[in-house]
Design a protein around this nucleic acid. Sequence first.
DNA 1: GTCCAGGCATGCA
DNA 2: TGCATGCATGGA
Length: 279
Amino acid sequence: MKIIYENNNIILSSCQNFDLGQTFECGQCFRFEKDADGYFKGIANGRQLLLKQEEDTVTIFDVTLSEFNEKWKSFFDLDRDYEVIINELSFDARIKTAAEKTGGLRILKQDGWETLCSFIISQNNNIPRIKKIIASLCVLLGEQISDGIYSFPSADKVAKAGIEGLAPIRSGFRAKYIIDAAEKIASGTVNFENILKLDYIEAKKELITIKGVGEKVADCVLLFGCGFYEAFPRDVWVKRVIEKYYGSDFSPDYFGKNAGIAQQYLFYYERKFASKIIL
DNA sequence: GTCCAGGCATGCA
DNA sequence: TGCATGCATGGA
């Protein structure tokens, strides 16, 4: 990959294993959309981001080189060689097949609190509605960045709103879980800086102390928000794949240190290509 | 109208 | 420890 800074845009050329559509659509994030002209728009790290991809060239608009190096390089996991990872995982025929279609996705490193809150909302819910609830939460309690664009609200702001304050977002039984998470993050009882220093097992234990956070949500937070690539979220889709192809004695250790990436290939492939569900 | 959604807490064996 | 059940809401 070559990085060029030009007219306040970052141009990434000769990108390998980097497809914006797959990265944003594969189910790890909820605030990026593709518009009719093929531009991707989203909100992350407290700002709006505009991107476009033509073949193996990705342009990130209105971003300085220092901002790119500080924030977005790690956000898009650009220092990781996914081709090597796919080769390592391709001892498994299912991964090899899946990655032929989904190998352009990259595991984003999103804000921990936002990821935690988003995946609490995701439980027993469908993706359109998850996006809708998150969007209303941002309008309700986030900061207005520009016209109609709102940041993800701080844990402090959400904690202060309380369960009643969340009523307008219609999150149902999840409201009490959102508030418990917000309170624990705001008070420092659960601290992402600390979690990043722990090993995977300890980090997961820490997250599960939050009400409404079980193994699956914790694994999503660790994988999509904390860079624990061994985290292997088992949702209904992945469980289905495991039952069908790997059997009941399956362990994520089978895929090793990048089990989470393997999981994402399987999840996305199953939803997009192996089932009739349209994303 | 009915089914079900990137689960989890709870109660009961 | 393991399994059944309820949960709020609205998309499909």
